[in-house]
């Protein structure tokens, strides 16, 4: 996939974001008077600037050819699946409890990346959970979801 497509994609997203924030700001109440600009001023101006910048970037990306690097789709796909794994992990933490989910996630995550040294996998999983328990749960008294 061309680098340019990604640039254009993000610029378009930023234009859309600008529009979204801008439209959202139209519902804000008016200023309370006395010289105050009101809650809609800042987001309004920023949305405008963002739309302009986003469009400019889009145009530049379309015109100039200096950004013709290629990014292998396979790698991107790998990362996106990885993101999904991470999302699932975070989703499960309050469901099954932090320690159980983490000790299950660790080997999954390592194996997914292609790491094959089993003793290390076991070691890291157990070690990390023990550290999390000792430092965060006991010492710092952070109430992890159980």
């Amino acid at each position: 996939m061309l680098f340019r497509f990604g640039e254009i994609g993000i610029s378009v997203l930023s234009v859309l974001a600008g529009i979204a924030f801008g439209l959202g700001s139209r519902n804000f109440p008016a200023s309370a008077g006395g010289g105050d600009l009101g809650p809609a001023f800042f987001p309004g101006i920023l949305s405008l600037i963002l739309i302009i910048l986003g469009s400019l970037q889009c145009l530049f990306s379309l015109r100039y050819n200096r950004s013709d690097k290629r990014i292998p789709l396979k790698t991107l796909f790998r990362v996106i699946v990885g993101m999904g794994l991470c999302t699932f992990y975070i989703y499960m933490i309050p469901v099954c409890g932090y320690f159980y989910v983490t000790i299950a996630f660790c080997p999954l995550f390592l194996l997914y990346q292609g790491y094959r040294k089993i003793p290390w996998i076991v070691g890291i999983s157990v070690g990390f959970v023990i550290l999390a328990y000792g430092v965060f749960y006991r010492m710092l008294a952070v109430a992890l979801p159980l």
Binding site: S11, S14, A17, G18, F21, F42, P43, L46, S47, I49, L50, L53, G54, Q57
Partner: peptide, 11 residues
């Protein structure tokens, strides 16, 4: 663009 986006997030 990143900065303006950040400013909007801060709103």
């Amino acid at each position: 663009s990143a900065a303006i986006m950040g400013l909007l997030f801060s709103c």
